[in-house]
Amino acid sequence: MKLYYSNGACSLSPHIVLRESGLPFTLVRASTKTHALDDGTDYYTINPKGSVPLLELDNGERLSEGPAIVQYIADQAAGKNLAPANGTFERYRVQEWLNFITSELHKGYSPLFRPTTPEDFKPVLRELLLKKYEFVDAKLAGKQYLMGDSFTVPDAYLFTVTNWAKHVGLDLSKFANLQAFMARMSARPAVQAALEAEGLVKKAA
């Protein structure tokens, strides 16, 4: 499998899940600014959406959209318990979290990264995100991860988007449960490996 990614973008989520899965894969960087691969290939010829992540299977099939990709990966590594079995109510809980993160958190950050967003509107956007994080923080009370005491695929997505807070001036320090979750995630070997591979943290000596 090939994962098309951009350093620190939402593609970090399936990157983490791939490392958690133990499945073989290769990384291909696609710039979100130039929409080109490192070798100069026009990324739009690979993914007409121009966005990351994109997962290319060994048979040439391509899958886009992070929430779909992470579930596909989880199902290819069933023994790792990265997501509950299809058809179970708990699987729908995973999908509920993935949808919430993509629509309420991920898309909430997007305008804060846009240079065209008026500065006087950004405090409103930050306040909206803080309200969403109040909900997340409450749901994390008494839990190690979103679904309980075990890592599942929405944890990688929550970690990825929450990592953007420091880049857009969003102060999440008052959310103790969320802060504990982020520390717990950061300590996972698969997360460290993904962050190092994308140049987001220095490699351990």
Rank of each mutant, 00 (worst) to 15 (best):
101 I>M: 06
90 E>K: 10
133 Y>W: 14
122 K>H: 06
133 Y>M: 05
22 G>I: 12
33 K>P: 03
188 R>G: 06
7 N>T: 13
71 Q>I: 02
169 G>D: 03
32 T>H: 12
93 R>G: 04
39 D>G: 14
176 A>V: 13
172 L>C: 07
1 M>H: 13
11 S>T: 08
47 N>G: 06
48 P>H: 03
140 L>G: 05
116 T>R: 10
38 D>I: 08
167 H>M: 13
9 A>P: 00
131 K>T: 13
163 N>F: 02
153 V>T: 03
141 A>W: 00
8 G>N: 12
174 K>F: 00
160 T>Y: 00
23 L>I: 09
77 A>P: 09
92 Y>A: 11
174 K>N: 04
98 L>F: 00
48 P>E: 08
165 A>N: 02
88 T>C: 09
42 D>R: 05
43 Y>Q: 06
54 L>Q: 00
195 L>H: 03
104 E>V: 04
154 P>A: 05
101 I>H: 07
136 V>C: 07
138 A>H: 10
89 F>I: 11
66 G>S: 13
150 S>M: 03
87 G>D: 03
123 P>L: 01
22 G>L: 12
87 G>Y: 11
98 L>G: 00
109 Y>S: 01
95 Q>S: 11
135 F>L: 14
179 Q>M: 06
16 I>A: 06
160 T>M: 01
142 G>S: 08
98 L>S: 02
187 A>N: 12
114 R>V: 02
103 S>I: 07
65 E>C: 10
172 L>R: 01
60 G>M: 09
59 N>T: 07
72 Y>Q: 05
46 I>L: 10
125 L>D: 14
141 A>H: 02
113 F>L: 11
84 P>Y: 05
90 E>L: 12
122 K>T: 01
60 G>Y: 10
142 G>T: 08
11 S>G: 13
138 A>K: 15
44 Y>H: 15
194 A>V: 09
50 G>H: 01
89 F>T: 05
22 G>F: 13
9 A>L: 01
196 E>Q: 15
106 H>N: 11
130 L>F: 09
76 Q>R: 10
167 H>W: 12
148 G>F: 07
50 G>N: 06
197 A>F: 12
159 F>Q: 07
182 M>P: 03
35 H>L: 09
117 T>D: 04
10 C>Y: 05
197 A>M: 12
19 R>K: 15
155 D>K: 00
46 I>S: 04
87 G>W: 11
181 F>T: 02
128 L>W: 04
68 A>W: 02
19 R>I: 11
123 P>F: 07
45 T>F: 08
136 V>E: 06
4 Y>N: 01
120 D>A: 14
69 I>A: 09
136 V>K: 02
41 T>P: 09
151 F>V: 10
181 F>Y: 09
205 A>L: 13
